[in-house]
Amino acid sequence: MYSRIAGTGSYLPERILSNAELATRVDTSDEWIASRTGIRQRHIAADGQTTSDMALIAANRAIEAAGIDKSEIDLIIVATTTPDNVFPSTACILQDKLELHGFPAFDVQAVCAGFIYALATADNFVKGGSAKCALVIGAETLSNITDWNDRGTCILFGDGAGAVVLKASEEPGILQTRLHADGRYRHILKTEGRMKAGGLDGSPYIYMEGNAVFKFAVRALADVAEETLAAAGMQQSQVDWLVPHQANLRIIESTAKHLGLPMDQVIVTVDKHGNTSAASIPLALDEGVRSGRIQRGQTLLLEGIGGGFAWGSALLKY
């Protein structure tokens, strides 16, 4: 038994924040941002628009694409770093908004690797027989934890949500997943703020040591791609599409080069979406599917890395 992606969906807020507009707030320019990151714009959630609000739209679009009735869903996993509340989980809030109840719903927190962690978890539920139809979502409102006066980070992040419906199938679907983490690097990329005695203890904003993150990410993503392909007994040449976490165009290009893939076999959305953390891979996947580039039967390699460090990949037949 495999778990197989039956449908994809995504949502981006209407508000677009361009590099040119950012340059009126902090000392930067469109050329400076684009040349270093590949980012041209990002989407920002409206006032009062929550992570679960965006997840709901992406989820409904994935359900429609899968051609299922929502009553078939028996598992919801939401990957997010920016939940609606401390608790309950965003997954439980989403479950309520979908007017569903009674089955497992929970969040996964692995930052930019969150969707891969959630997908691997759902895959194990389905393969083990504990679920038959899972809704897996990556959703983020990173604008809530972005310091808009810090030009080193505010240029990078955006909001959005992506979703997949994962169904039990006898046809090949997810072939291999690999997950890793190394907490020794937890100080390099973090948001350390926490609730304490009715107030906030620590900074509520994203902190990042950019060069250190870049160096680790390039090496880790190359290694996990090789590991995942080897576990499946497949060659790099058998990959039709690389669907990477959209953090930085240079990291994406480096990963593709290591795999021997031309950039026209890589789904790139970082220019339009920025870094949307756990939402970036499902957003890119949905764009690839809806644009007609990703076709049924093709082999996809999804991979991402985020704070923790946490990283992972998934090899699948779409």
Results as ranks from 00 to 15, higher is better:
residue 122 A to N: 07
residue 84 D to N: 09
residue 101 H to S: 15
residue 132 K to W: 01
residue 125 F to W: 15
residue 86 V to W: 10
residue 88 P to G: 02
residue 117 Y to S: 01
residue 107 D to V: 08
residue 111 V to L: 13
residue 130 S to V: 00
residue 123 D to H: 14
residue 91 A to I: 03
residue 95 Q to L: 09
residue 106 F to H: 10
residue 111 V to Y: 05
residue 107 D to L: 08
residue 86 V to I: 14
residue 89 S to M: 08
residue 113 A to E: 05
residue 116 I to E: 06
residue 123 D to T: 15
residue 123 D to Y: 01
residue 106 F to T: 01
residue 93 I to N: 02
residue 138 G to H: 03
residue 127 K to T: 15
residue 136 V to Q: 03
residue 95 Q to N: 08
residue 106 F to K: 09
residue 85 N to M: 13
residue 140 E to R: 05
residue 125 F to S: 06
residue 112 C to N: 03
residue 130 S to A: 14
residue 135 L to R: 09
residue 105 A to L: 07
residue 125 F to G: 02
residue 133 C to Q: 08
residue 102 G to I: 09
residue 110 A to D: 05
residue 108 V to M: 06
residue 134 A to M: 06
residue 122 A to Y: 04
residue 113 A to G: 14
residue 117 Y to I: 06
residue 101 H to T: 15
residue 135 L to I: 02
residue 134 A to S: 15
residue 86 V to Y: 12
residue 120 A to I: 07
residue 131 A to D: 02
residue 117 Y to K: 00
residue 120 A to M: 07
residue 121 T to G: 00
residue 105 A to F: 04
residue 104 P to S: 09
residue 102 G to T: 11
residue 103 F to N: 09
residue 137 I to W: 02
residue 98 L to D: 03
residue 119 L to H: 00
residue 109 Q to I: 15
residue 107 D to K: 10
residue 126 V to G: 01
residue 112 C to F: 10
residue 106 F to M: 11
residue 92 C to I: 11
residue 120 A to Y: 00
residue 131 A to S: 15
residue 142 L to Q: 05
residue 92 C to T: 14
residue 142 L to H: 07
residue 145 I to V: 15
residue 87 F to M: 13
residue 112 C to D: 07
residue 107 D to S: 11
residue 107 D to T: 08
residue 127 K to M: 12
residue 129 G to V: 12
residue 141 T to N: 13
residue 99 E to C: 11
residue 98 L to E: 03
residue 129 G to M: 08
residue 138 G to W: 01
residue 114 G to S: 12
residue 116 I to T: 10
residue 103 F to W: 12
residue 95 Q to K: 01
residue 141 T to S: 12
residue 134 A to H: 06
residue 84 D to G: 06
residue 111 V to H: 04
residue 120 A to T: 13
residue 102 G to F: 11
residue 84 D to Q: 09
residue 100 L to Q: 06
residue 117 Y to V: 02
residue 94 L to Y: 04
residue 85 N to W: 13
residue 98 L to W: 01
residue 107 D to W: 03
residue 130 S to M: 14
residue 143 S to R: 05
residue 89 S to V: 09
residue 103 F to Q: 08
residue 104 P to W: 09
residue 125 F to L: 08
residue 89 S to Q: 07
residue 136 V to R: 00
residue 109 Q to V: 15
residue 102 G to D: 12
residue 145 I to S: 04
residue 124 N to A: 14
residue 89 S to A: 14
residue 138 G to C: 09
residue 84 D to S: 09
residue 132 K to I: 00
residue 124 N to L: 11
residue 101 H to D: 12
residue 143 S to M: 08
residue 140 E to Y: 07
residue 106 F to C: 06
residue 109 Q to A: 14
residue 128 G to A: 10
residue 141 T to Y: 03
residue 109 Q to P: 01
residue 120 A to D: 12
residue 126 V to E: 00
residue 114 G to T: 01
residue 93 I to W: 03
residue 140 E to W: 05
residue 94 L to I: 02
residue 119 L to N: 04
residue 144 N to H: 13
residue 115 F to Y: 15
residue 133 C to T: 14
residue 122 A to H: 05
residue 139 A to Y: 00
residue 105 A to R: 07
residue 136 V to N: 00
residue 133 C to I: 04
residue 124 N to P: 02
residue 122 A to W: 03
residue 135 L to F: 08
residue 102 G to C: 10
residue 87 F to Q: 10
residue 118 A to K: 04
residue 99 E to K: 13
residue 115 F to E: 01
residue 104 P to K: 07
residue 133 C to N: 10
residue 91 A to Q: 04
residue 93 I to Q: 06
residue 87 F to L: 13
residue 111 V to E: 02
residue 117 Y to H: 10
